[in-house]
Write a protein that binds this DNA or RNA. Structure first.
Length: 587
RNA sequence: GUCGCCGUAGCUCAGUAGGAUAGAGCACGAGAUUCCUAAUCUCGGGGCCACAGGUUCGAAUCCUGUCGGCGACACCA
C-alpha cells in the first residue's frame, strides 16, 4: 500500500468514527511543505454539509488520530485543514521494504487484465518525421507503465497500409512506367521477388503522388480506382503493394529501434481486410448498415448528443473501404482473438470524432464484449508560428535527423566537459546516444498529453535544468558513489534514522512512486512521471550538495545514507525506464 | 455556422473531483567547489491565472457571457 493510501485509510477511519463519509478522509500532499508533509481537507467539506464549525470538527478528528504510531504530528490549521507529519523512523522502515520488494512500490492496479495499445501508426511510404514522435513515445511510455502496474499488454503499430495513399502510390508507379509488369492485366505467373522501388524511391514518390492528386482531379480519380482495385484483390496491385509494405517496414523498424520503441505486433489496416466482407454482410443483415448517397453507412448518433455525430462510412460509393471500416474490423479481430479488457488508441487528438464514431459503431454492433474502448489523444506539435512544425527549409524534419542532431549535441557537450578523451569512441558514442534520446523523450513527454505544444529545437538539445540528461546525471552520480563505496557497507542496514530536511524530503518523494505510477496510468499521462522523476532527482541533488556520503565519518550515518542512495538509484532508474530513458554508467 | 480544446511569469510549460502564500525550467542578477561528476547546488527580482459577471465562508479550478488562438465537422488518414 502506498503511503498516501495508508494515511487516507487512517484518516477515513476517523471520519467514519465521527459518523461522516469516509471518502472525506482523503489525504494529499500538503500545499504548504513549510507547514506539514500531508494534509486532509475533508473537515471543511464535512462541516459545510453538517452546518458545524469546521475547526471544531477538525479538532475532534485530529484527536482521534493522536495515538496513531505512524504519525509524528497532527495539527489543525487555517479554516480547518488537518496537517500530518509522518515519523522519520516510519519513513525509513517503509523505504527499506520498498527497496526489498521487486516491484519497488509499483501499484498493481490491473490484476492481470489485458490492454491492447494502438500507437505509432506510421504510414507505408512516408518516412517518420517529428510529428510521429508523440504517438510513439507516449504509447511506448504507457505500455511500459501499464506492464509495470500489472497489466498484460499487447502493443500494435497499426501500420497505415490500406487507404488511398496506397492507390496514389500505385498509380504514380504506373504513370512513371517504373514496373509495367504489375499493371499488365494479361500477366500470368509470379511477380518479381525483388521490389521495384527502394525506401528512398518511396519517399520521393509519395509526396509527388499526393501533390499531383491534389492538383488534378483526374489523378485523384485514378488513385481512388487503384485503391478500390487493390482492395478488391487485383493480383498485380497486391504484389506491388506487398513490396511497398516490406520496404517500408524495414525503414520503420530501424526508426523505432533507434528510439527504443518496441511493438508486440506489426499489424496494419490491411490485416483487417479478410474480416471486412463478413462484417459488412452481418451489419447489413442486422439492418445496422444502410445505403446513403451511394455509400454504405452506419448511423451512430445518440439522443443526448450536443453535436451532430455523422454516420460512420463503411464503404465508399466505389466500394472501397475507409479507415473507419478497418478500425471497426480491427476491433472485431482483437476482441475475437484476444478478448482484451481495454483497447487504448494513442492517436492525434484531431481524430477524436472519428474514434467516437468507431467506438459507438462497435458498441452498437455488439462487437466489444468486455473491452473498454478509449482514445487517448495528444496535441499537435507546432512550430514557433503556431502551425505544424516545419524546418527552416520549409520541409518537415525527419525523425532520424532530430535524433542525429541530439546525439551530436551530446557529443559536443562531452568534449567541452573534457570527458571525451579517456572514454573511448564506442562508449562516448553510446553515451551521446542515450543522452540525446533522453533529451528528446523527456522534452516531449513532460508536456501534458492533450495540449498542443510548440516544438522548440533548442529545448530538445538542452541538457540542463528540467531535462532528461539532468535525470541521467543524478543517476550517474549515485552509481559513481556506489562504485566507490565499500562493498561490505552496501550490504548493511543502519540503525541510524536520517533526519535532515534534505534527506527527509527525498525519502518522502521516494515513497510516492506508487502514487505517481497509479495517477499516471489513471490519466494516461506521462508528464506525471516526468514531474515525479524531476522532483526526485532534484531532491537527491540537494542531499548530494548538502550531505556528503562517502566522507561521512560516522559509520552508521554513512551506511544509512548509502541505503538511501541505493534506493534513490533504484527508483530513479525505474521511472526512467518507464519513460523509455536509459542510464549510462557514466557521462 | 455548430461543436470541442485552449488563453497562467519575458519565453516554454505544470497545476482544474474548489482550499492556506499560484509553481517549475529557461532567460536575467548575486553567490557556492581543499571533499562523492559544476550536465550541479543556494538566494533574488519577475503574475489583475485573457476579460466581465455569477455560485461559495473560499475560485486559476465550477456556471454564464465577451474577446482571442487552434481544431473537428460523410465518401483523405
Amino acid at each position: 500500500m502506498g503511503l498516501l493510501e495508508d494515511l487516507s485509510q487512517r484518516v477515513s477511519a476517523a471520519f467514519a468514527a465521527e459518523g461522516l463519509a469516509a471518502e472525506l478522509g482523503q489525504v494529499r500532499l500538503a500545499d504548504r511543505p513549510d507547514l506539514a508533509q500531508f494534509q486532509c481537507n475533508g473537515a471543511l467539506a464535512a462541516a459545510k454539509a453538517q452546518g458545524v464549525n469546521p475547526r471544531e470538527l477538525a479538532t475532534r478528528l485530529a484527536q482521534r488520530l493522536e495515538n496513531d504510531p505512524l504519525l509524528a504530528r497532527i495539527a489543525v490549521a487555517g479554516p480547518g485543514f488537518i496537517n500530518l507529519d509522518v515519523r522519520d523512523a516510519e519513513l525509513q522502515s517503509r523505504l527499506r521494504m520498498q527497496l526489498r520488494s521487486a516491484l519497488l512500490g509499483a501499484p498493481q492496479t490491473a490484476a492481470g487484465r489485458l490492454a491492447m495499445l494502438d500507437f505509432g501508426g506510421p504510414n507505408v511510404a512516408k518516412p517518420m518525421h517529428v510529428g510521429h514522435l508523440r504517438s510513439s513515445i507516449i504509447g511506448d511510455c504507457l505500455q511500459r507503465l501499464f506492464r509495470a502496474n500489472g497489466w498484460r499488454v499487447i502493443s500494435d503499430v497499426h501500420l497505415g497500409d490500406w487507404g488511398l495513399q496506397m492507390g496514389q502510390l500505385i498509380s504514380e508507379v504506373q504513370i512513371r512506367g517504373l514496373a509495367p509488369v504489375y499493371f499488365d492485366a494479361r500477366h500470368e505467373g509470379p511477380y518479381p521477388a525483388v521490389s521495384p522501388v527502394s525506401m528512398d524511391d518511396l519517399e520521393a514518390l509519395y509526396p509527388a503522388a499526393a501533390a499531383a492528386c491534389k492538383a488534378d482531379p483526374a489523378r485523384l480519380e485514378a488513385a481512388r480506382l487503384a485503391t478500390a482495385e487493390l482492395q478488391a484483390g487485383r493480383p498485380g496491385y497486391r504484389a506491388l503493394w506487398q513490396h511497398f509494405v516490406r520496404v517500408s517496414e524495414e525503414g520503420l523498424t530501424r526508426e523505432f529501434s533507434s528510439l527504443g520503441v518496441h511493438f508486440d505486433e506489426w499489424k496494419g489496416e490491411s490485416d483487417a481486410d479478410p474480416l471486412i466482407g463478413d462484417m459488412i454482410a452481418d451489419l447489413k443483415r442486422r439492418g445496422l448498415a444502410v445505403l446513403s448517397e451511394g455509400a454504405l453507412v452506419m448511423a451512430v448518433a445518440e439522443p443526448g448528443d450536443k453535436k451532430e455525430i455523422p454516420p460512420l462510412l463503411l464503404l465508399k460509393s466505389d466500394g472501397a473501404v475507409l479507415y473507419g471500416t478497418t478500425d471497426l474490423a480491427t476491433i472485431l479481430a482483437r476482441v475475437s482473438r484476444q478478448d482484451p479488457d481495454l483497447i487504448l488508441y494513442i492517436v492525434d487528438q484531431r481524430q477524436h470524432v472519428h474514434f467516437e464514431q468507431v467506438f459507438r459503431a462497435a458498441r452498437k454492433a455488439d462487437l466489444v464484449r468486455k473491452a473498454q474502448l478509449e482514445h487517448a489523444g495528444f496535441g499537435t506539435m507546432n512550430g514557433p508560428d503556431g502551425k505544424p512544425f516545419k524546418t527552416r527549409a520549409g520541409g518537415v524534419m525527419k525523425l532520424y535527423e532530430l535524433i542525429a542532431m541530439a546525439k551530436d549535441e551530446a557529443l559536443k557537450r562531452l568534449a567541452e566537459a573534457g570527458l571525451a578523451a579517456d572514454y573511448g569512441d564506442d562508449e562516448r558514442a553510446e553515451i551521446a546516444r542515450k543522452v540525446g534520446i533522453a533529451a528528446i523523450k523527456f522534452a516531449d513527454l513532460s508536456n501534458h498529453r492533450t495540449t498542443d505544444y510548440v516544438f522548440d529545437l533548442d529545448r530538445f538539445m538542452r541538457f540542463e535544468g528540467k531535462t532528461g540528461p539532468y535525470l541521467q546525471y543524478a543517476a550517474v552520480r549515485i552509481q559513481s558513489i556506489l562504485r566507490k563505496a565499500a562493498t561490505a557497507e552496501l550490504e548493511e542496514e543502519s540503525a541510524h534514522v536520517l533526519d535532515s530536511v534534505e534527506e527527509r524530503a527525498l525519502m518522502l518523494q521516494l515513497l510516492l512512486l506508487g502514487e505517481a505510477m497509479a495517477s499516471a496510468e489513471e490519466r494516461r499521462a506521462p508528464n506525471i512521471l516526468c514531474d515525479y522523476a524531476f522532483e526526485l532527482a532534484q531532491r537527491f541533488s540537494r542531499v548530494y550538495a548538502a550531505r556528503h556520503i562517502l566522507a561521512e565519518e560516522d559509520h552508521s550515518v554513512r551506511v544509512a545514507r548509502l541505503e538511501l542512495a541505493r534506493l534513490t538509484l533504484a527508483v530513479l532508474t525505474k521511472v526512467l525506464d518507464l519513460l523509455g530513458i536509459e542510464v549510462p554508467a557514466r557521462m
